[in-house]
Nucleic acid binder design. Structure first.
Length: 317
DNA sequence: CCTGTACCTAACCG
DNA sequence: ACGGTTAGGTACA
């Protein structure tokens, strides 16, 4: 009963990516997808512009304001402008991944089982590379709430206005490299960027003058793409890996931040005190073909479900 | 390699 | 209520 398409113009364009979409009205569609927890996914620190409002999860995807709402067997999406083809949202939400296969590929060990049980329905999403790069340049030694503030301020002040939902707050697209470059360092600092402002500005200039072509990274090996990203000031291995995973979907990019280092050490080497190099090697070899997803589960599990891993001196058991 | 420190700022915790 | 501490890093000694 929920397999039928009620639209006609869109179905051909979307079928190859996501066969489980029903058009409800020109600006609404229903996505029939299991095991996709919006709350866990959108607040797991991989993206920073989604807000839970009285209407549902609101955000901006591909230049469109979107509200996502949980419904039985999936979720419903609404935009402010009619759309015929919803593949932009399927792509953003990575609905083309075979999620059952992803979960099956995880190593069968105690930490992964615990993370899976605790973070049911956690997914990876596919962000625009530019927004993702700026977001993670802003992330260094900041808490998630602070990162969210920065990204929102940048959008409000320098992004192009979009058509808002009626009766709701104004919305802006994430600013382009040109828009951020024109803003200048002082204006960027005023968005609470601090010492990260010149880094964002340098990234904007690099993209603007062609020294960094973000779409070219698609065809590079992960290692080559990482080299290209870390050439930017303020972009080290951790931020580069976040961009490679959250924007380019590289499953062999496994960001090692303070949470992950503590989490991996406590969960997999409880009485060993492994070196960072050892943990790097372990992360790169233990988690299989969908290591990026495994990473997201472990990260979220450590951060949200294991307060005992908060401190540097995590207890051994 | 590994260790320590500065870099901005505000949320966090006691 | 309030001040020291810390926060999903990076660059540079």
């Amino acid at each position: 009963m929920d397999d039928g398409f009620t639209g006609c113009s869109f179905s051909r364009a979307v079928t190859s990516i996501e066969p489980r979409v029903e058009v409800v009205s020109p600006s609404r569609a229903r996505f029939n997808v299991r095991a996709f927890d919006l709350h866990t996914t959108l607040s797991s620190g991989q993206t920073f512009r989604w807000r839970l409002t009285s209407c549902g999860w609101t955000g901006v995807v591909a230049g469109r304001p979107v509200i996502l709402l949980r419904v039985e067997n999936g979720f419903e999406a609404q935009t402010t402008v009619p759309v015929a083809d919803w593949s932009w949202l399927s792509r953003y939400l990575r609905l083309d991944d075979d999620f059952e296969a992803v979960v099956r590929s995880f190593p069968d060990d105690e930490p992964m089982r615990a993370a899976l049980a605790a973070c049911n329905g956690l997914r990876l999403i596919r962000q625009p590379a530019w927004e993702c790069l700026v977001s993670f340049i802003c992330s260094s030694t900041k808490q998630i709430v602070q990162i969210e503030q920065c990204i929102e301020l940048l959008s409000q002040r320098f992004g192009s206005p979009l058509v808002p939902f009626s009766g709701e707050e104004p919305v802006w697209d994430f600013p382009t490299p040109e828009q951020l470059m024109m803003a200048g360092e002082a204006s960027l600092r005023a968005c609470k960027l601090g010492f990260r402002a010149p880094y964002v500005l340098a990234a904007a200039r690099s993209v603007q003058d062609g020294r960094l072509n973000l779409s070219e990274l698609e065809s590079m090996t992960t290692s080559e793409a990482r080299t290209a990203l870390t050439a930017l000031p303020g972009v080290g291995p951790k931020i580069a890996d976040c961009v490679l995973l959250f924007a380019y979907g590289r499953q062999d990019a496994f960001p090692l931040d303070v949470w992950m280092l503590r989490g991996l050490a406590a969960l997999y080497f409880p009485r060993r005190r492994p070196s960072p190099k050892r943990l790097r090697d372990f992360a790169d070899t233990h988690f299989g073909p969908w290591a990026g997803y495994a990473q997201q589960y472990l990260f979220h599990y450590a951060r949200r479900h294991r307060p005992d891993l908060r401190t540097r001196k995590a207890k051994a058991s």
